[in-house]
Design a protein around this nucleic acid. Sequence first.
DNA 1: TAAAATCAAATTGTGCACAACTTAATTTTA
DNA 2: TAAAATTAAGTTGTGCACAATTTGATTTTA
Lengths: 153, 153
Amino acid sequence: MDAEYFLKLENQLCFSIYACSREITRLYRPILDQLELTYPQFLALTVLWEHKRLTVKEMSELLYLDSGTLTPMLKRMETMDLLKRERSREDERKVFIELTEKGVQLRKDALQLPEKCIPHFGLSKTEYYELLQKINQMITSLQKVTRTNNEVK
Amino acid sequence: MDAEYFLKLENQLCFSIYACSREITRLYRPILDQLELTYPQFLALTVLWEHKRLTVKEMSELLYLDSGTLTPMLKRMETMDLLKRERSREDERKVFIELTEKGVQLRKDALQLPEKCIPHFGLSKTEYYELLQKINQMITSLQKVTRTNNEVK
DNA sequence: TAAAATCAAATTGTGCACAACTTAATTTTA
DNA sequence: TAAAATTAAGTTGTGCACAATTTGATTTTA
């Protein structure tokens, strides 16, 4: 492994991925602005459109975000009348998140997002799927290290 | 294009890339902690190791970060004695950034980063390069839209 | 060459991201 | 079954990211 080589910015895959992530968010922003959503809020809605009702913990596992990020964001979204937060009666440590009618309805408007944005990725259908698969493979590998006690040192 | 399909979290390439970016940062963190650096600070050092002296504008173009992000970060790094900020005499709008001896020396310690981290990406050499290329291709496509006035609406 | 336009950096304000910690509830175990 | 351990959510504090705006310098142009 040539450490000198990989220390150059242009050869750092981590930088490319980090920059690409922000570039996609920038692409999405004008449309999300119309829906009055941020990108993380849109992701939170996405999992709620799929699962109806989730605890904060479950959302945290789906989005890889912790309660320190989710709690304040969900509170903001509650204020915006997109969702309800309700503490579980069976286990009072848990808080259930459920969409309001407004939150459910927003899905219709959000459908334009993939249609308007994905063409700008500059990828063929095949490239899109292959890239998705590769990145997911990478996430799985990374989580083996980052989600255990085997910290890299 | 099946918008319903692409609205599912698992099919969203943007989510994968966003999650992957954070997962890599998490992998890097224990090592960067030892160097007392954050990931964006490490990137700032990376471009300064390559270019010796840069204006804020030039760093902003290399890292795709604006002055609102860079100025406070560079001030923190100046306090940490990693770099100097000096306003240009020829054009007083510009501020030059240059590494201190401490900033230069940190490069030696940073060399361990790629060596220790890249193996955990779970990619072969070929896969690494292909992925790097694909992501860079994607960034270029995205910038055609995000870095012009043709906003997606 | 003086006004208008542009430019570079800094500032302000909002919203993540996340480490570290706290609180309160539930589960485990001695 | 009471103490210890674990768990879920919330809190606190720091550091990005970035839009929008401001400040001051330089360039363009009428």
